[in-house]
Each structure stands twice: as C-alpha cells, then as structure tokens.
C-alpha cells in the first residue's frame, strides 16, 4: 500500500531549538525525520504514529516516522518540517514555475521496515 502526496514544508520552533543544541542530536533527528499525514491517509496506509514510512520521488528518498495530523482532514496533503531530510526530496531548479520547491514536493509514501535515515547518511549521499 502506498499513497501519492504533496508535501509542504514549514518551520517549527522546537526543531529549531533542537538544531541549535546540535544537528547530530537524537532530538533534532526525531523532530526533523517525520511526516505529518492526514488521519484517514494513515489508516489507509495501515500505519500509526511513529511507524516508519519511505518517502520518495525523482530527486531522492528518506525513511521517516509517520505522525497523525491534528488539523482538519487534508487528504493527499502532507507536511514536513524544513530539514536536511525534506531537502533530500527537493529538486534543484527551485525558482521557476515548473518546480515550486520545498513548498510543494510531490512524493510517494509507503510503509517500510527500514530504519529512519540518519543525518550522517544524508551527508554521505551529498559527498558521494
């Protein structure tokens, strides 16, 4: 089971605070490596809070934790805090009409048993 979603990134003060403690802290990873999904979407995917999802598109892929939205229903719309994890999914040409950048990422999410992508792995991918 998988789902196509549009991901919108946003700022979060708690993640910002965790980032200031250190990019490599568990707290920063836990707040950054997660995707907020509509409750119905989560039920359809058969995942609960904290269970892992692979998020992938033409640009890249990351494994993050699922979190149920507390907002009103927003099917096919997901949210991620701006972070190195969300940036793995953002294309290069972010200033033209064909690519709206980190505010409208199209991706596919699917449940996985893989572990959460670690920040050290993200750095390795960039340096590879």
């Amino acid at each position: 089971m998988d789902a196509d979603v549009t991901i919108v990134t946003f700022r979060d003060i708690f993640q910002d605070e965790a980032g200031k403690k250190g990019r490599y802290t568990d707290e920063y990873r836990d707040l950054s490596a997660r995707i907020i999904l509509d409750r119905q979407e989560m039920a359809r995917l058969g995942v609960k809070d904290g269970q892992r999802l692979k998020v992938q598109n033409d640009v890249g892929s990351v494994v993050v934790a699922a979190k149920a939205s507390e907002d009103e229903p927003h099917p096919a719309l997901a949210f991620m805090i701006s972070s190195p994890w969300s940036n793995q999914l953002v294309g290069d040409e972010v200033c033209n009409a064909s690519n709206p950048g980190p505010k409208r990422i199209t991706a596919r999410v699917s449940p996985t048993d893989d572990g959460i992508t670690q920040i050290s792995e993200l750095l390795q991918r960039m340096r590879a």
Partner: peptide, 17 residues
C-alpha cells in the same frame, strides 16, 4: 550558513563536492 542542511539536495550535493 549551513547550505548542506538548508539547500535542496542537488545544490547541496554540488557544493559538497
């Protein structure tokens, strides 16, 4: 600045190399 954290993957990768 920390462009490897804040920039889209392709640009960050270009810089990282």
């Amino acid at each position: 600045s920390d462009p490897l954290s804040s920039l889209p993957f392709g640009i960050a990768r270009a810089l990282a190399k």
